[in-house]
Structures are given as structure tokens and as C-alpha cells.
């Protein structure tokens, strides 16, 4: 009896260990594979030129792989998304957590979380057919497929993440803080803005970081609505011009490259840049969340 129990304990713990090792192993292999192919570009192309080159002409002879317009394109679209989504998302979270009546909060929150379940291709389609023509006529520009359009759709995609996590963070601020503030003669808004929101700040920042992470890694939407012109965004009006992002480039060009050609390796290098950016954002989010848990 005791022996069989011991055996089953052992079996279960080893199985779980195997699951963990497998998952982590797969991730490591993906990273190694990505790194290996990205580094292979170095054989035929200088990394410095790759990172700082202002032109992306992968099929000219000789090919030019300047990834800077792509990096800036990704950052520009993400920045636009953040500027739109953060105030809107955090504002909505504060409203839902602090001001909205209970019945409204309980209907709105699941409804907002459903937005996260809309496939990005559907959002891209809406952006392409509804928003792009609208933006084109609104700003009287040549094409509605711009960085701004992409940022707008990405903002919409990042909203559920930001709202949901920020609302959780605000709601989990202990009631005692609110009571303490109100009992000192603070108005409800003073209580919210000076005690509750600062107390939830790490959670709110984490929600923003995760929202950014979602936006920068998004492919389908940007492929459909940003116009995909690998042009350096040099001035402010680049916002209303087509751009190309890191993700969009890989998605669009990978199917046409020759296996193990410089172009093929260049696309892996683009993937590595994306990986590094996403990793940094997730790492910051993790540090921030961790601090938030410690503060509790």
C-alpha cells in the first residue's frame, strides 16, 4: 500500500517535471534556432549596416537590408497605439472600478474582455474597409493605409488587456485606504486620484506594458492597414503616411525568399530584433508587477 503510493507520487512528480522540461526546452530551441539563422546573416552582410541602414531593398542586386525603417515603423505604430489606448484604457478602468454602479461594472467587464477574443484579421478587415477610407477623407490624404490607422486598430486591440488588468489592480486596493482617505475629509475624486490610483500604479503600469507587448507583436492588423511601404518615418507627418513594421515584413516576405539566402537570414534577424524588443517589454512588465505584489 505504502509502496504503491510512493511509486505513484514519484510517477506524477516525474511526469510534471517532464512537462516543464519539455516546454522550456522547446522555447530554448526556438530561441537558438532564431539566433542561429539571424547570426548567419553576418556572413554576407554587416550587422551595423543592418541595424542602421535606411533602405530595405531585399530583392535588388546587390540586396540592401537596412532594418531601421522597419524598427521605426514598428515603434511609431506602437507609440500611436499607446498614446490612444493608455489614457482611454486607464480612464475606463478607473471609471469601472471606482465610479460605475455595480451592475454596469459587472456587464461591462466581461463585454470588454470579449473584445480580446475578436480575431485580429477581423479587426484588420474592419480597419481596411471602414477606417482607412474614413481617415483618408478626414485628413484629405492620398491613402488611408497609414501608421495612424494601424495605431488606431492596435489601440483597440490593446484596450481589453489594459482595462481588464488595470481594473483588477484598482479594485484590489484595500477598502481601508479609501475609508482612511474619506474619513480625513477627502472627496471621492481626491481619494481615487491621490490614494487609490497611486496604490494601484504598479498594476496599472503592468497593464500598459502588456498592452504594448500585444501591440508591438501584432502582425495581421499592421499588415492589412499600415500600407507596408518600407519608408523611413522621418517627420511628424509620417504618422499619416504608410509604414512597414518588423512583423509585417516577415509575414509578407518569408514566403518569397530562397531558403538560406541572405534575404532569408535577414528576415530571421528582423525576428530577433522583435524578440529582443518584446523581451524587454515583458521583462519591464514583470519587474513592475513583482514590485506591485511585494508592496501588498
Amino acid at each position: 500500500m505504502r509502496k504503491s503510493k510512493k511509486l505513484s507520487e514519484l510517477l506524477i512528480s516525474k511526469t510534471i517535471l517532464a512537462c516543464g522540461v519539455f516546454a522550456i526546452g522547446v522555447m530554448l530551441l526556438i530561441f537558438v534556432f532564431l539566433l542561429k539563422d539571424a547570426v548567419s546573416l553576418g556572413g554576407s552582410y554587416s550587422f551595423l549596416d543592418f541595424l542602421t541602414g535606411r533602405n530595405w531593398y531585399p530583392i535588388s542586386t546587390p540586396p540592401v537590408f537596412g532594418a531601421l525603417p522597419l524598427i521605426l515603423g514598428s515603434l511609431l505604430v506602437t507609440a500611436i497605439a499607446v498614446v490612444i489606448a493608455v489614457p482611454l484604457g486607464v480612464g475606463t478602468a478607473i471609471y469601472l472600478a471606482e465610479i460605475a454602479p455595480a451592475w454596469l461594472r459587472e456587464t461591462m467587464k466581461p463585454a470588454i474582455e470579449v473584445i480580446a477574443a475578436i480575431p485580429s484579421v477581423v479587426l484588420g478587415f474592419i480597419g481596411l474597409t471602414l477606417m482607412a477610407p474614413f481617415i483618408q477623407s478626414l485628413f484629405n490624404i492620398n491613402t488611408g493605409l497609414t501608421a495612424f490607422t494601424g495605431g488606431l486598430v492596435l489601440a483597440f486591440m490593446a484596450l481589453p488587456t489594459i482595462i481588464s488588468i488595470a481594473e483588477d489592480a484598482i479594485t484590489s486596493v484595500p477598502r481601508a485606504y479609501r475609508q482612511g482617505s474619506l474619513a480625513l475629509g477627502a472627496t471621492p475624486w481626491q481619494t481615487t486620484s491621490r490614494v487609490v490610483v497611486p496604490a494601484a500604479m504598479s498594476g496599472i503600469s503592468a497593464s500598459v506594458m502588456l498592452g504594448i507587448g500585444r501591440a508591438i507583436g501584432e502582425t495581421m492588423v499592421v499588415l492589412m492597414v499600415t500600407g507596408n511601404a518600407a519608408v523611413m518615418p522621418t517627420s511628424l507627418d509620417s504618422i499619416f503616411k504608410p509604414v512597414r513594421t518588423l512583423t509585417g515584413t516577415i509575414a509578407q516576405e518569408m514566403g518569397e525568399t530562397v531558403f538560406q539566402s541572405p534575404h532569408y537570414y535577414a528576415l530571421f534577424a528582423v525576428g530577433l530584433i522583435l524578440f529582443v524588443i518584446t523581451f524587454i517589454i515583458n521583462w519591464i512588465a514583470d519587474v513592475v508587477l513583482h514590485r506591485y505584489r511585494e508592496a501588498e
Partner: peptide
Amino acid sequence: VELRSRVGEIFQKPNPFP
């Protein structure tokens, strides 16, 4: 709001702000 600035309260569990 004015009333509560005249009548303060100390709670059962200490509740300093973070």
C-alpha cells in the same frame, strides 16, 4: 467632506496609505 475634516476616525486595523 467638511464634516469629516472636523470629525476624524481611527480604524480598527491600522490603515496607513502605501
